[in-house]
Design a protein around this nucleic acid. Structure first.
Lengths: 358, 358
DNA sequence: CTGAAAGCGCTTACAG
DNA sequence: CTGAAAGCGCTTACAG
């Protein structure tokens, strides 16, 4: 009568207890119509009594849908990726999907192939790659990996659907803000050039300077780390000491800006009186640095939501194409490209250009 | 001959192509002995040609093992949880397990029940909860959730196996360091008191002061955020202005220490000349603050590895207990409790106590 | 060393 | 409105 103990109850156990067939239990569990209210109640009682949970594995086998989505990321402890992942996670749960995450240790084709294999083994229905690096995008686009695949941050030209923050616009706004404060030009400490975000921010910086008729100084190439911000900051201090006018710096992320702030502080250079600093990311501590950092905020939650929606759309499109609702020979839809705006947050690390003492 | 296109190949397709039965394909795929080398080669060729991947769902159904482990976390964008999660992720992948992650929006019993349900629905074999909050641990221990369940950071007294960093020892070392520098006492800005880590750090601080025969000033209760560090810092500046001797502050995390640093800077108080500051976490930017922050580092990668090992041990123990290798009536093994040490990193924000100007 | 049979726990037509 | 049958793609004994 009662199910064998030590084994969790299955549909047949519920059916026996409720005095119906297991198909009827299935109907109740799946909310199908055409079940008598009284039967439903009896089945529900049996379910509650037994503590029955539908076996998702068996269900997945027959429906051919695992309800699992894969996420490929490079380093989920970084601010941006961590935020994006959290956004995707929330959106996925709300949409009834599970998430399987794999972090890459390196972006080599071999490393990427292994990660992709891991995901394929788990029969994910689709994937989102948080792929801000050039090499990673290239490897992903070439590997016969899971499809559909949506690229978050980067992936341009890969043929993959892309969701990203408008990095260039954010950088442009930051630099424009400094120009408007009277700075003749703006120096730049860039991120790791292997990252597409670094490239986009450089582009936005250049464009803003170009529009203002300002000459772009040689950018200092960092690697996102506070250490590199510090080191490039010291370089900048030297360049200033030799007479080069340095009055404003746009730094490609807040961590490097923190390093720069220390280098300037050590040299006795005041922010913003002597040099203005603008970062990127708006990390929680940005507002509480000394001085509070002007920076560019990205809406990662929205990036997460949008990328999940794009992936779900692709999944739907895949099903439709099997059903042949597109006329044969029609060109395939181009890969969508969704762009989330970035927003400048002005605080106290940026101020008017110092009056040159001639 | 070739499998129907539009459908991914199954074992039977490989079998047909290789001219063997599907059981033989299964043997090859699972590396069973007792297959002729020549047969293995022929099957392998068919697998490669077809691009066959074993269907993990079908496999899970028959083996009753999903190979999926669940992780419950509160906020994976926080430094500690993000690091711990990354450590678990890496360890799980190396052990051949997949990870399903659910982030809680709140630690209410209802929120926790929902998260647990999500994981149960996915038939996870076991769970790790990154559960640093009192309420969360309580809810987890009471809910008829997935078992085995390992609690990371906190969970003491819940009856669950626990893996955590030795917070109290880390705090003790930090305070002892300040005492050794000649400070008469050490003030404390605590974390959110709902968090067990906050409590442990307070305990370590108190113990170190007690051992030194110092009186513990009333702690300032923060909430981990840079903002609260700033606000409590201003409070401390006021107390100092009224004549209270404040020469050293142990702050429960680096983010609050950043806020404190700003509050001190605004008040013209020098660090470490006037006041020494020690944080907790060793975030990447700690070394590049002005001044570089003395803090306590936690080995999150090790926490991740250890917690996975404990979970795997529990899984093994569960199987053994079914096989009855323990004498009936023997008391169950007590829940293990593994503690990872914390390490003080001395930098420039801590220095000798100022000579009191009488 | 290899194959025919049974079954994992469901859902999906198909009858009635 | 409800049930008997078939089958999803594998693995696990059991034969040979």
């Amino acid at each position: 009568m009662t199910p064998q103990s030590g084994r969790s109850p299955v549909m047949a156990d519920v059916a026996r207890l409720a005095g119906v067939s297991h198909q009827t239990v299935s109907r109740v569990v799946n909310g199908h119509p055409n079940v008598r209210a009284e039967t439903t109640a009896r089945v529900q009682r049996a379910i509650d009594e037994l503590g029955y949970h539908r076996n998702s594995t068996a269900r997945a086998l027959v429906t051919r849908r695992t309800n699992v989505l894969g996420v490929i990321a490079f380093d989920t402890t970084l601010f941006g990726p961590a935020q994006t992942l959290a956004g995707i996670e929330r959106a996925a749960r709300e949409a009834g999907y599970f998430l399987s995450i794999v972090s890459l240790d390196d972006v080599s084709p071999a490393g990427v192939a292994e990660a992709v294999d891991y995901l394929i083994q788990q029969s994910v229905e689709g994937c989102i790659a948080i792929a801000p690096q050039r090499a990673l995008v290239k490897a992903l686009a070439s590997v016969p990996g899971p499809r559909p695949l949506v690229a978050v941050e980067g992936g341009e030209g890969s043929g993959l659907p892309v969701v990203c923050v408008d990095q260039a616009q954010g950088a442009h706004d930051a630099v424009r803000h400094l120009i408007d404060l009277g700075h003749r030009t703006v120096h730049h400490i860039s991120g790791d050039p292997e990252w597409l975000e670094a490239e986009s921010r450089v582009a936005g910086w250049r464009r803003a300077l170009g529009e203002a008729g300002a000459t772009a100084p040689e950018p200092l190439v960092g690697d996102w780390s506070p250490r590199s911000g510090y080191e490039k900051g010291r370089r900048l201090v030297q360049r200033r000491a030799t007479g080069e006018p340095v009055t404003a710096v746009f730094v490609a992320n807040d961590q490097m800006a923190i390093g720069l702030l220390r280098a300037l502080g050590e040299a006795g250079i005041r922010v913003p009186e002597d040099i203005s600093v603008v970062g990127f990311d708006d990390v929680p501590e940005a507002e509480f640095l000394a001085p509070p950092l002007t920076t560019v905020a990205q809406d990662f939650a929205q990036v997460g939501r949008v990328s999940l929606r794009v992936l779900l759309d692709e999944l739907g499109a895949g099903e439709r194409s099997v059903a042949e609702d597109a006329p044969p020979g029609a060109p395939p839809d181009p890969a969508p490209r969704l762009i989330v705006p970035a927003r400048l947050r002005v605080r106290q690390s940026s101020g008017p250009a110092p009056v040159p003492h001639r």
